[in-house]
Amino acid sequence: MLQFMAYRLLRAVFTMFVVLIIAFLTLRFSGTPFDAMFPEGLTVEAEQALIEHWQLDLPLHRQFLNYLGTVAQGDFGQSLFTRERVWDMYAARIAPTLAVGGLALLLAIFIGIPLGALSALARGSAAERVAMWVAFLGYAVPHFVIGIGLILLFGYHWRMLPTTGLDSVRHYILPVLTLAIPTVAAIARFMRAAMIDAISQPHVTAALAKGLSRRKVATDHVLRNATVPLLTLLGLEIAGVVNGSIFVEAVFSLPGVGRILVGAVQDRDFPVLQFGVLAYAAIVVLISLVIDLLYTLADPRVRVEG
């Protein structure tokens, strides 16, 4: 097991390193940002002064090391446009993103897993078919389209729910739903497949042969075994939720980090962008590691083979 985790850790570190390089290159190879910042043009002296100030005249690898140093200190630079510290910009907006994302994930887990599990246990029933159709629809359609649809339906046609911003609890409903629906669908589909696969394993029939009740067989021998591959999926879905929140924030005009990220791309505000990439990658890598750790707990076969 140690070998397994060591390899994972190494890969995580290496991935973060690659991401750091990409973030750094994004910063530096975006050309001089001065064109965007000073559209009126600069005098040569002013430009030279700025270059020195931003240390753009040093060799690349020195710049990279400097960059690593600043990152280690938590200094991610300033927005090219608003001059705000990048860290502050993100910190101010992280809460709504986390709230909506977290709620959506919880909803997805608590609905998706039972949905998938029950439809696997009740093969051939009407309920199974309905569940699978719902999952099918939710899975195929992208986040932003779901958002638009929900807005049209609940926001304007029935005028039940607010569609912009996060001023009240009711404001959370549509964004969380939009983010959750595809995730519920993905989890339900996957869980069903994993359960069906688990059911066909010989030890399940053997468990039944021991005289265990069907319920016990379902929980201890089918569900338990299906959670193993589910872990991997959850890791991916968490990344998917982070992805999706960018779209959801755009659709519902939420004051989260997705907005500033997209804005940064449009405005070529690279310091803001590079932090987004770093933070996102760090989250994904961290989650991957946690999932791998949980995996070794869930599946004993992994522990020994390392």
Partner: peptide, 22 residues
């Protein structure tokens, strides 16, 4: 193969955004 592994772990959307910004 190691490059493959790293690419799998990288966040697609964010990278695309970076590339587009650049």
């Amino acid at each position: 193969m190691m490059i493959v592994d790293v690419f799998i772990s990288l966040p697609n959307l964010l990278l695309m955004l970076c590339g587009i910004a650049l």
